[in-house]
Amino acid sequence: MRHARGKDLSFRGDRYEEVPPDDWTTLSQLQQWYQLAARCGGCGRVSRVDRYALARAHGAALPLCAIGARLTCQNCRNKTGNMLLLGTMPRD
C-alpha cells in the first residue's frame, strides 16, 4: 500500500523487534508512530496487530509485556509461545 505522498505503508516483518518481557509500557503510553505485530510460536507467521482494537478490548492500561500471552494465531490457532513485536513506521 502506498500513501498519497508516495510513502510506503506496506507491512514488512523485518522492521520489528521483540518486546522485552520486562517492558511495562502500556498501550496508552506508546507513541503513535509505533506499530505492533505478532509472531506465532507454532507456525512462525508474522502479522500486524491493531493496537486501538486491542486497547478497546483489553483496556489502554494493558502492558506490552502481557499482550503476547493473550494472542491467538489466525493461521494455526496456536495460543502458546506467541510474541509481540514492536516497530516504527518508515520515515522520510
Rank of each mutant, 00 (worst) to 15 (best):
residue 22 D to Y: 09
residue 77 R to W: 04
residue 4 A to L: 15
residue 19 V to C: 08
residue 69 A to W: 04
residue 82 N to I: 11
residue 65 C to V: 02
residue 40 C to E: 07
residue 87 G to A: 06
residue 91 R to S: 15
residue 84 L to I: 03
residue 74 Q to H: 11
residue 77 R to F: 08
residue 36 L to K: 03
residue 88 T to H: 05
residue 80 T to C: 04
residue 73 C to G: 08
residue 59 G to I: 09
residue 13 G to I: 11
residue 11 F to G: 10
residue 14 D to P: 00
residue 58 H to T: 07
residue 75 N to L: 13
residue 77 R to C: 10
residue 52 Y to A: 14
residue 38 A to T: 09
residue 89 M to C: 10
residue 37 A to L: 03
residue 68 G to Y: 01
residue 19 V to Y: 02
residue 79 K to P: 00
residue 60 A to L: 06
residue 39 R to L: 09
residue 36 L to T: 04
residue 51 R to Q: 14
residue 28 S to I: 13
residue 15 R to I: 04
residue 92 D to S: 14
residue 58 H to I: 08
residue 74 Q to D: 13
residue 7 K to L: 15
residue 52 Y to C: 09
residue 31 Q to G: 12
residue 85 L to E: 04
residue 60 A to T: 12
residue 52 Y to H: 11
residue 47 S to E: 15
residue 5 R to S: 15
residue 72 T to C: 15
residue 89 M to K: 10
residue 69 A to G: 10
residue 28 S to G: 09
residue 5 R to P: 00
residue 54 L to R: 00
residue 59 G to N: 07
residue 79 K to W: 07
residue 78 N to P: 02
residue 31 Q to W: 03
residue 12 R to H: 13
residue 36 L to H: 07
residue 42 G to P: 00
residue 3 H to Y: 10
residue 89 M to T: 11
residue 27 L to V: 03
residue 44 G to V: 03
residue 16 Y to N: 04
residue 4 A to Y: 07
residue 57 A to I: 04
residue 61 A to S: 05
residue 44 G to L: 00
residue 7 K to M: 13
residue 27 L to P: 01
residue 88 T to R: 12
residue 55 A to G: 13
residue 92 D to K: 12
residue 38 A to Q: 10
residue 55 A to Q: 11
residue 11 F to D: 13
residue 14 D to I: 11
residue 74 Q to W: 08
residue 59 G to L: 05
residue 85 L to A: 01
residue 6 G to M: 10
residue 69 A to E: 07
residue 62 L to V: 03
residue 72 T to V: 15
residue 3 H to D: 15
residue 76 C to P: 01
residue 86 L to Y: 04
residue 32 Q to R: 11
residue 63 P to A: 02
residue 51 R to S: 13
residue 78 N to L: 08
residue 17 E to H: 10
residue 88 T to E: 11
residue 36 L to Q: 06
residue 44 G to K: 01
residue 1 M to V: 14
residue 50 D to P: 00
residue 64 L to C: 02
residue 47 S to N: 12
residue 30 L to F: 02
residue 55 A to Y: 08
residue 28 S to F: 09
residue 25 T to N: 00
residue 68 G to R: 01
residue 49 V to C: 06
residue 8 D to W: 06
residue 15 R to A: 08
residue 56 R to F: 10
residue 41 G to P: 03
residue 18 E to K: 11
residue 56 R to Y: 14
residue 28 S to L: 14
residue 64 L to P: 00
residue 52 Y to G: 07
residue 36 L to P: 00
residue 16 Y to F: 15
residue 12 R to F: 10
residue 83 M to G: 05
residue 23 D to V: 08
residue 41 G to A: 07
residue 3 H to F: 10
residue 15 R to V: 05
residue 73 C to M: 06
